[in-house]
Amino acid sequence: MLRPPTDTRFDIRPDPAGFSVRDLATGETLIIAKVRQCGLSREDAEHTAAVLNQAPDDASRTTH
């Protein structure tokens, strides 16, 4: 079971096709392996954000 994050960097927001995972540091939709994380089910978006919010700082950095 995932623990609540102590420092939230990733959040979810509704979008026209479902939910997006947003990087609060950049204000942009998260991209993982060249795939924009939008149009997800609420469950998938919440899980992705929760996992990344628990990652060490260097593992959660995004590159563009």
Rank of each mutant, 00 (worst) to 15 (best):
L2T: 08
L2G: 11
L2C: 03
P4I: 00
P4Y: 01
P5I: 00
P5A: 07
T6M: 12
T8K: 12
T8S: 10
T8E: 08
R9L: 03
F10A: 06
F10I: 01
I12R: 14
R13H: 12
P14Q: 14
P14L: 11
P14F: 13
D15W: 10
D15P: 13
P16E: 12
P16N: 15
A17P: 06
G18P: 13
G18K: 09
F19G: 08
F19P: 11
V21D: 09
R22T: 10
L24H: 15
L24A: 12
L24Y: 08
A25L: 15
A25W: 11
T26H: 10
G27L: 10
G27Y: 12
G27F: 04
T29E: 13
L30I: 08
I31P: 04
I31T: 10
I32F: 04
A33T: 07
V35Y: 03
R36P: 06
R36S: 11
R36T: 02
Q37H: 13
C38V: 10
C38M: 13
R42H: 08
R42S: 04
R42E: 10
E43C: 12
E43D: 09
E46T: 01
E46A: 01
H47C: 15
H47I: 02
T48G: 02
A50P: 02
A50C: 15
Q54D: 02
Q54R: 02
P56L: 03
D57F: 03
D57Q: 05
D58L: 03
D58N: 08
D58V: 09
S60F: 05
R61N: 06
T62W: 00
T62M: 07
T62D: 05
T63D: 00
H64N: 08
H64P: 03
